[in-house]
Design a protein around this nucleic acid. Structure first.
Lengths: 200, 200
DNA sequence: CCCACGCCGTAGACAGTGTCTACTGGCGCT
DNA sequence: AGCGCCAGTAGACACTGTCTACGGCGTGGG
């Protein structure tokens, strides 16, 4: 490390803090550099373009989400597969609702460089979700469904849609009532629907 | 009308064409004015701010989506409720995949003025989906589920997530195979899951 | 008849953005 | 010691959204 923490990491840090506190609109290149205490040209040494910096910040988000899920998995390793799926679902939309700015950044296909990533091993951004998806496929497969991959995909889409629409404000508006309890009902409804009634 | 079509409408027109052909990133205020053949200050007479213009364009998107759905409903008025729900689902993600730019604009809570809309009757943007949601609630209610509103909300979220994740590129990457057929399988999986097995 | 008012669109200024290009200062290497 | 390299600086450039002052036009009242 250079100064105790390389500027590259510091830029991602302040970007993550900034998107958490102010939202995606505050993620200007110059603003990030300002809060990192460097001049506006400095980030260019580490990220060729603004989009690549945002991609790195989004990658941090995916990493934290994956960390939450794997922690969950490590803790409740001997629960039923179905309970694990439900826990993952709650963690997914929980993360989205606790970090709305980061979550929206993570899935903004504009802003994020969709084309080739640097050959330095970093996978392309939209492949960051593949390991999580693989885990989901394995778990729903152990729940005894016919086609695990398509069921897992449909379930993931359901969780993602709940997170997105709820955060957007239209779903709570349609359902009314308390915020926190309804979103859990939706997650449970999704898991129950795709994994069958309520057995086990 | 002033010149054959008021500038207000023309601005929304070119915005819709622009977002369809170039994506949300091309929706600059000056760019829209340029393509409409007016100076960059002209839009300000009709829209107080850039966001309000984008909101008007997004409203156009919601209107077209609603138009497709109501046309579908009018045509197949005597199908089973379930088939109508499935048709609506396909129309929803079909619209999203055919108009990815407009669809992403419609649900970008930043960009869109979340606060009070002009008192001139125009409802706030995120309430534009309420009539469609109401229709969905009615239809799933006629399918004999216990809690129509929560089931309808979960199903809507599922469709929305399919549209979003598929357009994002991660779902097709996970499932592989053909593009067009898989997304229909996902829509069918969603409808079947939330409405029960495959009866009638 | 004509003048004054209101409104639509123009043109320019202003702060701010992302990218690009010189340039500087300090470090390690031969 | 001298040299090169590289992270960070500083300024320019084109562009953006917003604001303000200014024309030009039609309409209505005296």
């Amino acid at each position: 490390m250079d100064h105790e923490r390389s500027l590259r990491e510091r830029l991602i840090d302040v970007g993550a803090e900034l998107v958490a506190s102010e939202g995606t609109g505050a993620l200007g290149l110059r603003e990030i550099a300002r809060r990192a205490g460097v001049s506006h040209g400095a980030p260019r040494r580490h990220f060729p373009t603004h989009h690549s910096l945002l991609s790195a910040i989004a990658r941090r988000g995916f990493a934290e989400l994956a960390g939450r899920v794997t922690a969950l998995e490590a803790a409740a390793a001997q629960s039923t597969p179905r309970e694990r799926v439900r826990a993952i679902g709650r963690a997914y939309v929980g993360y989205a609702l606790e970090n709305p700015g980061m979550f929206s950044l993570m899935f903004r296909h504009d802003l994020l460089d969709g084309s080739g990533e640097a050959p330095s091993g970093e996978p392309r951004l939209r492949e960051s979700t593949l390991p999580l998806f693989g885990l989901l496929v394995a778990l729903v497969g152990r729940c005894g469904v016919a086609e695990p991959s398509v069921t897992a995909a449909a379930l993931w889409a359901n969780l993602h849609g709940v997170a997105q629409l709820w955060g957007w404000g239209s779903l709570p508006l349609a359902l009314g009532e308390d915020p926190a309890t309804d979103v859990e009902r939706l997650v449970d409804a999704a898991v129950d629907a795709h994994l069958g009634g309520a057995p086990a």
